[in-house]
Design a protein around this nucleic acid. Structure first.
Length: 562
DNA sequence: CCCCAATTGGGGGAATGCCCTCAGGCATT
């Protein structure tokens, strides 16, 4: 059980209590504990073994007891009892935009709605508009929200699926039941939303393989079990498939099961893998086909096959190419770590620079910095910076783009910063034209360097706002403004398609973690995967550059601006 | 519920505008 999963249970308890209209401080306590567990740098298990769970700020006597129960038994009796009152189907309704705890309580108690299907039926039968505070529009929004949910249904973010898949894979390797094992399928290709976990294995002892899988603590259930296939579900109902092949077929099977379907069809139309038996790895296989090795992230049949035949594949960016992170929050706004702590962690990752980019004043919910506090932060930052010889903290901001396209700080304030990210955090529902003009106004502002999370999408939860990407890319190219690839696995914004289009137009990008604590810095990896899916090289990505080149880009030396 | 002062009891809410319906819930990181 990962920290994140324990946190999700605590969060669910808070949600149930809030729906029940319980003591607000109790709710807050569970939410605080969930957040604290989420931001924890250490695993809960060793903390539990050393009896140090209470050391976590926000974890008291009773939450500690709950966490211990979860770690020991995989469940928690208080949570189970709450679920009897408020079933999980009621909690599912929280995913619908516009429905919060109060409204859900009303729907549950007065109409007896306990699931998403119940909700849909009630909305279609116009029973919801009879409730106080609800009308025809509310019913409309509910139906729209349900449709949105259905689109993302049965898909998990890479951020959820990949760690679970790796944990499962490592478990099988640790038990020694597999001679070879590899992640394949859409997770290997790095898709941002995946349907299932596909793992390829070689295992001589079939019976033992079955036993080992049946006793895996992260297993929910097994649906199907043959000598070549084991299908079932992991935690969070994540489907998995284990594909068992002979040792001399492994490389060919790796190639075949990684896909994608379109790639397979184009590169090997007959699907005859016989000539590729006995190969030692995929590289050899590509060699036999007269091609360069195609990285899994590119295998979508979008021109990469022809390029590989001509030996013209780009050298894709790698995590080790990253020299710094340009979007990081600290406890000055809504981050969980101090500036020095974040800087040390970034330095520990081998970075040579880090931009501190806390929120600006309009985003009050994130304790956005007033111009005065921003100045104070700058002074503190300089003091920390002077302690480093081989590392630089860049003074920056994630400044809000206001409704009309103006920025949330005066130019005199922005002038003193080295990195200005401009992002949208409000007015998501402007029409396409207004939204596009708003963003272009920010791009044309001479002091803006990067546009943060361009579309604001949250994978599986919220579509991005409407923007004209072509016009935005054009404006970025003209004004020497970079687009962010926000690496958070719930965002991955811009997406791979936009990234590829941007690169073709000469628009530079920044792969940023948007970290709110030390752990989050590691999320940058997902951004790199997404960048690779967009065929990017280190030249396309400004935080792969030396600091001098980066600084000169920010000064827009070569641009037509200023 | 947790924390912090003390060892039983009091204090603690992230701020603000939008939206839909008519007072207040919801969304934003």
């Amino acid at each position: 059980m990962t920290n994140r999963e324990v946190a999700r249970i605590l969060e669910a308890i808070a949600d149930i209590l809030q729906i029940k209209n319980d003591n607000p401080f109790k709710i807050k306590a569970y939410r605080n504990a969930a957040e604290a567990v989420c931001h924890l740098q250490e695993d809960l298990l060793p903390l539990y073994r050393d009896g140090r769970l209470r050391d976590i700020p926000g974890v008291g006597k009773s939450v500690q007891a709950g966490i211990i129960e979860i770690l020991e038994k995989g469940s928690m009796s208080y949570y189970d009892r709450l679920l009897e009152e408020i079933p999980s189907g009621v909690l599912d309704m929280l995913a619908i935009p516009g429905l919060g705890h109060k409204t859900i309580n009303l729907l549950h108690t007065s109409l007896g709605i306990s699931s998403l299907p119940d909700l849909e039926q009630a909305a279609r039968e116009h029973r919801i508009r009879q409730l106080p505070g609800m009308g025809a529009k509310s019913e409309d929004n509910i139906i729209k929200g349900l449709e949105l949910l259905r689109q993302g249904a049965n898909k998990a973010t890479l951020g959820l699926a990949r760690p679970l898949a790796l944990e499962f894979l490592q478990y099988m390797e640790r038990t020694g039941v597999v001679q070879k094992a590899a992640l394949v399928g859409s997770i290997r290709r790095g898709k941002s939303l995946v349907g299932d976990v596909d793992i390829l294995v070689c295992a001589d002892d079939l019976e033992r393989l079955h036993n080992v899988i049946e006793t895996y603590p992260g297993l929910k259930k097994i649906d199907e079990c043959t000598s070549t296939n084991i299908k079932g579900r992991l935690r969070w109902e994540l489907p998995f498939e284990i594909i068992r092949v002979a040792s001399d077929e492994f490389a060919a099977a790796q190639f075949w099961t990684t896909g994608s379907k379109a790639f397979r069809k184009a590169v090997l139309p007959g699907g005859n893998l016989q000539p590729f038996r006995g190969l030692s790895d995929e590289a050899e296989l590509f060699g036999k086909m007269g091609m360069q090795y195609i990285p899994p992230e590119m295998r979508e049949n979008q021109g990469e096959i022809e390029m590989a035949r001509r030996r013209e594949l780009p050298r894709l960016v790698e995590t080790s190419d990253i020299k710094g992170d340009l979007h990081v929050h600290s406890s000055w706004s809504d981050g969980g770590g101090g500036m020095a702590e974040m800087a040390q962690a970034a330095r520990g990752m081998g970075y040579v620079y880090l931009a501190m980019t806390d929120h600006s004043q309009s985003l009050s919910i994130s304790r956005g910095l007033s111009e005065e506090r921003l100045q104070a932060q700058g002074a503190s930052l300089e003091a920390i910076n002077s302690q480093f010889k081989d590392f630089t903290i860049l003074r920056g901001t994630e400044v809000d783009i206001l409704k009309d396209g103006r920025l949330d700080y005066h130019d005199e304030v922005l002038k003193n910063l080295e990195v200005v990210i401009a992002s949208i955090h409000s007015h998501f529902k402007l029409d396409r034209e207004a939204q596009t003009r708003r963003i272009i106004a920010a791009i044309e502002h001479p002091l803006v360097n990067i546009i943060g999370h361009l579309t604001g999408r949250l994978l599986g939860r919220r579509p991005g706002y409407e923007v004209d990407v072509d016009r935005i890319l054009e404006a970025c190219a003209i004004n020497q403004v970079a687009l962010e690839i926000n690496a958070h696995p719930d965002r991955l914004d811009i997406d791979e398609g936009t990234a590829r289009q941007a690169a073709r137009l000469g628009v530079k990008m920044a792969v940023n973690s948007d970290a709110h604590d030390v752990n989050d810095l590691q999320l940058l990896e997902y951004g790199i995967i997404n960048a690779r899916r967009g065929w990017l090289t280190k030249n396309d990505i400004i935080n792969c550059w030396e600091i001098d080149r980066l600084r000169s880009f920010f000064k827009k030396d070569g641009g037509s601006c200023i």
